[in-house]
């Protein structure tokens, strides 16, 4: 059964058509990769799905419910959670409190929400920063914080927008392992990423976007052979 259906999703910013008629069905527990050049509309797609932006036309069906036009908090509450490519920490708070804000959804008491948050923080490897103010984290730390907050909501489907960007290879490996764990635990993942090694290692299917539209969709090994993909995104060297 598909957990997420996108039916003819389009989004225009004035004259700019950032998304054009995207139609995709994502089965439960799939690891779904998305690549495409800068400005292809990947982040916009996430925003339209997760409710930060309303689509100009089209529908989003999540878990059998039409969630088109739902507010972002309602979508997150239903179990569809996204991270932000440009990190958005709560800067007046520690790392622990940033994550416990998300844990509060399940745990009313501050103490319990913090216990849960601490577990999640350990999982993403941020324990050493537990009581640091979130604003002081380096990029790699902020990326993990984005991931930790999303995980703390215990989503059914997780939309990850370039969580590996800005991480050096030694920092990537544990996050890639973690994503594999999360996926194995039963979470559906949509994964936007420029780092092809990770995309190839994790994705079960891969969507290539170009100028707001689907260029191609298929198993990663086939997709990267596609001459149009090579031309539009990967380049000859890949």
């Amino acid at each position: 059964m598909s957990i997420l259906k996108l039916e003819g999703l389009s989004k225009s910013f004035g004259g700019l058509r950032a998304l054009r008629d995207v139609t995709v069905e994502i089965p439960e527990r799939e690891f779904f990769g998305i690549i495409g050049p800068n400005g292809a509309g990947k982040t916009t797609l996430f925003s339209v799905i997760a409710g930060q932006l309303g689509p100009t036309s089209g529908r989003v069906v999540f878990d059998g419910q039409d969630i088109t036009g739902w507010s972002a908090d309602k979508v997150a509450g239903a179990g569809l959670v996204r991270t932000f490519q440009l990190m958005r920490p709560f800067e007046s708070m520690t790392v622990l409190d940033n994550v416990s804000i998300a844990s509060h959804r399940r745990f009313r008491s501050t103490a319990k929400s913090r216990d849960h948050a601490a577990e999640v923080i350990e999982r993403v490897g941020l324990s050493q920063y537990l009581n640091k103010m979130s604003g002081t984290l380096p990029t790699a730390g902020l990326k993990r914080l984005e991931l930790a907050r999303a995980l703390a909501l215990e989503p059914k489907i997780l939309l990850l927008d370039e969580v590996l960007a800005g991480l050096v290879p030694t920092e990537r490996a544990p996050i890639i392992d973690l994503l594999r764990d999360i996926h194995r635990d039963g979470v559906t993942v949509m994964f936007v990423e420029h780092i092809m090694a990770a995309v190839m290692a994790l994705s079960e299917r891969l969507l290539v976007m170009h100028e707001g539209a689907e260029l191609t969709l298929g198993v990663p090994e086939d997709v990267v052979q596609d001459p149009r993909v090579v031309e539009a995104y990967l380049g000859e060297d890949f």
Partner: peptide, 26 residues
């Protein structure tokens, strides 16, 4: 300030978009 609603309020102040995406009705 130390309660759940108060902590949500401070999160919303810091970044309403992030707060809303974490399921908080801002």
């Amino acid at each position: 300030v130390y309660s759940r609603p108060g902590r949500y309020t401070q999160a919303i102040r810091d970044d309403p978009v992030a707060a809303e995406s974490l399921g908080i009705p801002i």
